[in-house]
Structure formats: C-alpha cells, structure tokens
Simulated scan of single mutants.
Amino acid sequence: MTTDARSRGAWRDTAATRVFGSLFSWFSLALALTLLFQSVSALADLGGSCARGGPYEIAVECTDAIVLFTPWSVFVGIGAVFLGAWLAQGFGAAILLFAWPGLFVSLAVVFFRSLIEYGDLTGLFIGILFAAMGLAPLVLVLPAAPQRMLLGRVDAAGRAFWEARPARGHVLSRRPPREPGDNHPSIGDWVLSASVAGGGIALGVWLGVLWFASVA
C-alpha cells in the first residue's frame, strides 16, 4: 500500500471515527424503527389497509406520515446502520446483530397491541411468529460471543480486546471469529460502549417521535 493510500484511509483508524460510527449506527436504527413502528401502528388504527391516489375510489386514505415513512424507513435505516458499522470497525455493541431482532420484535409489539386493543386474534399468532424470528439470532449468537455482542471486538483506539470466553463459531457465522487480543477491557470501555449505544437509541427515538408527530 502506498503512503497516499494509507493517508486516505487513516481517517477511519481514529477513535473519533469509531465512536461516531457506533453512535450513528445506533441512532439510525432507533430512528428507523421508531418511524416504522409508528407508521405500522397508525396503519393498524386505520384497519390494516389504506391507499392514496389512483383512479379508484379510496375507502380509507393513508395519512401523510404513513405515506412518507413506511416505504423508506427500513431500507434507508438499514443502509445507515451498515455505514455506521463500517465506520465503527468492531467498536461498540454489535449493531448488525441487534438490527434484525429490533426490526421483528418492534413489529411483534404492533401485532400484540392490535390483539389487546381490538381483540384481533390474528395479531397474537403473527406477533408470536415475529417475536420468534427476531429473538432467534440472539439465542444463537449471544452464547457464542457475549462480550463481542455487548462490548465490541476492539476499543475506541482499535486494540482488540482480551476475552475471558473467546468468541466461537455459530450457525450464522460464515467464517471463524478473529482471534482476541491482550487488551483487557476496563470499566471505562464498558461505560463508553453502553453510553454510545444508549445515547444513540435515545436520540433516535426522540427525533423519530417528534418527526412523525410533525408530519401526522
């Protein structure tokens, strides 16, 4: 690799970039899921279906918020999550492993809500199905790599953590996990990782609620 290539890639190898990447990915996930949850909940309140535009008479018209947020919230949110994970480079809680459970469990809550509020038994079965689909990856991966899921593989400076229980392969992994390092995680490392994830989630939920309300 040339010196110019190293200098162009050096900006990714900083603590600030890793922390920002983790924060951005958790914020993006929380924002996308908050908008999707509110959109699907609003759709359920309308009876489960709506439409807008076209040559036919519309029985139930979709709200502005449903039209705006439902189509793109998941896809744009997932794209932003991958971008943040690419910047984080293994720092912080494993956002890519939590994104799938977050999506399906949040949708399961919507169906359970329809059961409670409207007595829709279909919501019970679909809610259980979605909850199982969302929680299955956690059940499979968490025992295999608990520290990497909750803390990350490296600290903010990019130094690989030592692991009391080194990560092992699992059914969702296509390649063996990278070897742990000799950098023992400190309380500060745990606090930083939790603060970044928690702060990103809180900011994403807060902005998602405000944004949806402003359009609705």
Rank of each mutant, 00 (worst) to 15 (best):
L107V: 05
G199I: 07
V191G: 01
A164H: 15
R8G: 02
C62W: 07
D155N: 13
V141W: 09
L207D: 05
H184V: 15
W190F: 11
L203I: 05
R165E: 15
P137G: 02
I126F: 12
P55Y: 09
V67P: 07
G123R: 07
L203T: 05
L23I: 02
F75Y: 12
G188Y: 01
T63F: 09
G79H: 08
D120F: 07
D4M: 14
E61Q: 10
P185H: 10
H184E: 15
V105Y: 05
P180W: 03
P71F: 00
S7D: 13
L107Y: 00
G54F: 11
R153M: 10
I95N: 08
F37W: 10
A202G: 14
A213L: 03
G54W: 10
G181L: 02
P176A: 15
I78G: 05
D155Y: 01
I58W: 02
L142E: 14
A216H: 14
G9E: 14
T34F: 05
F24E: 05
G77F: 13
T3P: 07
T14Y: 01
L151P: 13
A194W: 15
S106C: 04
F130E: 11
I78N: 06
L124E: 01
V19C: 06
G208C: 06
Q38V: 11
V191D: 01
Y56C: 01
H170P: 02
L46T: 01
G169S: 13
G134F: 01
Q89M: 15
G181N: 00
V81H: 04
G208D: 05
L150D: 10
G102K: 03
L87G: 02
L107M: 12
I126L: 13
M133A: 12
S28M: 04
A5I: 13
L31Q: 07
V67R: 07
R12A: 14
F104C: 06
G53P: 11
A145H: 11
S193I: 09
D4K: 11
S195Y: 11
V205S: 06
F125E: 00
W162I: 02
A145G: 05
S41Q: 12
A10T: 12
I95D: 04
S193L: 04
H184K: 14
S41L: 09
A164W: 15
E163D: 08
G21Q: 06
R174Y: 05
F20S: 03
L129W: 06
I95Y: 01
W72N: 12
G53L: 07
F91E: 05
A16L: 15
A99L: 03
L46I: 01
Q147D: 10
F111R: 01
A108K: 00
F37E: 07
R6Y: 13
F82Y: 14
A136M: 13
G204H: 04
L121Q: 03
V205M: 14
C62H: 04
G181E: 04
L103C: 01
V60R: 11
C62R: 02
L36V: 06
A202R: 08
L138E: 07
S195I: 02
A16W: 15
A108Y: 10
P176N: 12
R165M: 14
V74L: 14
I126Y: 10
A194Y: 13
R8C: 07
G102S: 03
L29R: 00
L138Y: 03
D120V: 11
M1G: 13
L192I: 09
